[in-house]
Design a protein around this nucleic acid. Structure first.
Lengths: 251, 251
DNA sequence: GGTCATGTTGCGGTATGTGCAACGTCCGTT
DNA sequence: AACGGACGTTGCACATACCGCAACATGACC
């Protein structure tokens, strides 16, 4: 809508690929050097880009600050965290929390064996949206039209032989997931990793987030993982209840 | 420099404080609603902001992606990481890596006891720039004028009685740090936490990053921590050497 | 000292962003 | 049901602020 801002914002993912000098930016944007310079200067003033000694630009530290703050203002995460830790302590496996936003699924929390950590390392990376259990749960709840449109527009990388191959298969899987209320990924992303997930619902029943348990199949068989479903689903429901405004439910 | 972009970027930290609706954004920006709307739409198209069900805007998931990618393209971090892990395995304490950028100091890596993790949780948060050992190291190496200007413009929060109280004290401390080549923070940020740090220098001798060891003084006395200085400094030098283009030095 | 590559500056034309006012839409209220 | 208020949205005319150009620094390399 706004040409100038549009161009400026286009610079950011461009620099995310790696540092670039003025001319490279100008060429990639399809604008004159002076125009690119003005945009970069404005971005620089806001700390969004940084200029290294060799004068090339790269993304700036302010992005970390913003991402961090964006993160902390996600109230689902805040509410869910202690429950996820409890779940982890009970069964020992890796716990993930994810949300859907404008065609993307992002992990917003992770608890790993015995060591609670917000594993930002997974955040932002292209989540395996076509295979991850949490992605299935979040997409399964989208309105029919949006779900279909999104499924058509996705790529279906064959991470493993069990990866979801195409849109029709994905939509069928989503229908199943929606029907039964939980999702799984048995080696669809990494051959040896299994995963089960459950939806977290808000007051209106919409899925606001999803959580999952992951474990390598050399440690835990898929059956053993499935046996943990009741605990996982109970956790998800507790979180949903609290999120919906029953803070002192099963205290 | 560019009014439109400037306004658009101003929206981001504003939303970082919490969700806001169109009118609030317009008022804070001092522009007409329609103008704010256009800016927000452009930001939205780029995933920088997200519109929740109640139509209020908040920061979007794309920020995570950008921060993540910015992160991975920091080559100091990449080079340093294995050395930091080795250091941690050797002495067991928490290891930090930080860089300076445009008046800010940010942690870009962390290794905690027996569990290597990029502790993104600290990134973006205002680092205790006036007391942290790594901050002292990075600021001590700035050109005289910039160092002085920055010191004047900083706040000096009294985290503890040992926190750096004001600009003159800070500049004196920086002079000491620069002279002797290492820095410490004994309870200047948190009463019970001690910390020693060493500079990582590039080929031209400039400090490109700094690393540190932290430990609670109930576990390790400050003397014991100081005894680890040689190991820490050796690590820092190894990283600096490799970063300067001697990849196969002390293999 | 010359040449090349790259970043920077000043300037006029006009595309582009701006504010205004009218219109939708969704609430809650009587 | 009808009304009213609060917000978000749209179309438009004006002029601002952005754009590309071309000339000018700057610095590296030979």
């Amino acid at each position: 809508m706004s040409q100038t801002v549009d161009r400026a914002l286009t610079i950011l993912p461009l620099l995310a690929e790696g540092p670039a000098n003025l001319e490279q930016v100008a060429v990639r944007l399809g604008v004159h050097k002076s125009t690119a310079l003005r945009l970069l200067r404005t971005l620089h003033e806001h700390g969004m880009v940084y200029r290294q000694q060799d004068q090339r630009y790269r993304l700036g530290a302010r992005l970390f600050a913003l991402a961090q703050q964006a993160f902390e203002s996600l109230d689902v995460r805040e509410i869910a965290h202690p429950h996820l830790v409890a779940l982890n302590e009970r069964c020992g496996h890796t716990v993930h929390l994810a949300v859907y936003e404008d065609g993307e699924v992002v992990y917003i929390d992770k608890v790993d064996s015995r060591y609670p950590v917000r594993m930002y390392s997974r955040i932002g990376k292209p989540v395996a949206i076509t295979v991850a259990a949490v992605a299935k749960l979040l997409l399964a709840d989208l309105p029919e039209g949006e779900r279909r449109a999104l499924a058509e527009r996705l790529d279906y990388p064959a991470y493993t032989p069990r990866s979801t191959p195409n849109a029709p298969a994905f939509l069928r899987e989503l229908a199943v997931v929606r029907e039964r209320g939980w999702a799984a990924d048995f080696g669809g992303h990494e051959e040896s990793i299994n995963c089960v997930g459950a939806p977290i619902r808000g007051a209106d029943g919409r899925v606001v987030a999803a959580c999952s348990l992951s474990a390598p199949n050399v440690v835990v068989s898929s059956d053993e993982l499935l046996a943990l479903l009741p605990v996982l689903r109970a956790t998800a429901e507790t979180i949903g209840a609290e999120y919906s405004g029953k803070p002192l439910s099963a205290q």
